[in-house]
């Protein structure tokens, strides 16, 4: 039986890491293009609510996920308009997006609170009845999509020409502009991709993780995804370790309750947040700082010269 319970833990970790992986992979691309989008939480909530509503109304998982991604991308363009066209402060615009998204999602989903869904079916694995460990491979399609996105982003950023342009824009927008690349267009597309991934991450929460809608159901995952990008040093591969670590810390709370430890559950719930801080401290040491790959133009407003 021990084996089965470890299996359950591994499955929960995988399940808890998917929304973080999706949102962080999107944000990583955005930051590689030199834009800091603090609106992840808002975009995730929009994706969560739209995905849920579309699933309830249309019944199709695929359409629901597609709608969530589209809404995330569309919503992120409000942010893009403000930071790119109106050259607004990225921190303030991102916060506005988070607050607006939270409110909008609450209003949209008001009629759907308390509605429940069957969770998204997992992709079955042939022969999973032979050995319980094969069951480890049974996940919702979004889980596999998350892994695919990481691979795709890694390939795109470091093995494609367009990715090279994107990184150039993020490292020195003036040079990229001088070379004739449209800085604003590249950034707008990157922000749209980040929005779509955040929307999908949100949809994972409302369709797979806890198949229902409730206000503020992301519970700070958007912010943790932001920290994960730092944790990964802006390298997609390392997101896998980061999300695995954070998801393990998150589910500790659930299992700690099962073991009826003397520590109050709230303290276990604090762990992901405290761990984020601890890791940020660790990574900010001089040794790691020198190895960091932070985009040089991150957070800087681009105003094209004459």
């Amino acid at each position: 039986m021990l084996e089965i319970s470890w299996l359950a833990i591994a499955l929960t970790i995988a399940a808890a890491s998917t929304p973080l992986l999706l949102a962080a992979a999107g944000e990583l691309v955005v930051e590689r293009a030199g834009v800091l989008n603090l609106g992840l939480e808002g975009m995730m909530l929009m994706g969560a609510v739209i995905g849920f509503i579309v699933k309830v109304e249309s019944g199709s998982w695929f359409v629901a996920c597609l709608a969530a991604a589209c809404v995330g991308a569309l919503f992120s363009q409000a942010f893009a308009f403000f930071v790119l066209t109106l050259r607004a402060n990225q921190v303030a615009a991102g916060l506005a997006l988070t607050i607006l998204g939270g409110g909008l999602a609450a209003v949209l989903g008001a009629g759907y609170v308390g509605v429940s869904l069957a969770p998204m079916p997992r992709i079955p694995v042939v022969g999973s009845e032979l050995h319980p460990w094969l069951g480890l491979l049974e996940h919702s399609p979004l889980f596999w999509l998350g892994l695919l996105v990481v691979v795709g982003v890694q390939w795109f950023l470091f093995h494609s020409r367009a990715g090279l342009v994107l990184r150039a824009v993020g490292d020195s927008h003036d040079s990229a502009h001088a070379l004739g690349y449209s800085v604003l267009k590249v950034r707008a597309l990157a922000i749209a991709f980040g929005g779509a991934m955040a929307g999908l991450g949100g949809a994972y929460l409302s369709l797979v993780h806890t198949p229902l809608w409730s206000e503020g159901m992301t519970a700070g995952r958007g912010w943790i995804a932001l920290a994960l990008v730092v944790f990964a040093f802006w390298r997609p591969w390392r997101l896998l370790f980061g999300t695995f670590f954070f998801a393990s810390v998150t589910i500790l709370e659930i299992y700690a309750q099962g073991f009826s430890l003397a520590v109050p559950p709230q303290f276990f719930a604090m762990l992901p947040y405290l761990a984020t801080i601890a890791i940020l401290v660790f990574l900010s040491s001089a040794y790691w700082r020198g190895r960091s790959d932070a985009p040089a133009a991150l957070g800087k407003t681009f105003a094209p010269p004459y």
Binding site: L86, A93, I99, L100, G102, A106, A110
Partner: peptide, 22 residues
Amino acid sequence: LPYAAAGIFQGLLLFSVLAFGF
């Protein structure tokens, strides 16, 4: 409407300030 609808106007207000600045 849910209470959180206030967030819509708060977000829009902040966006308005940013537009004003521009």
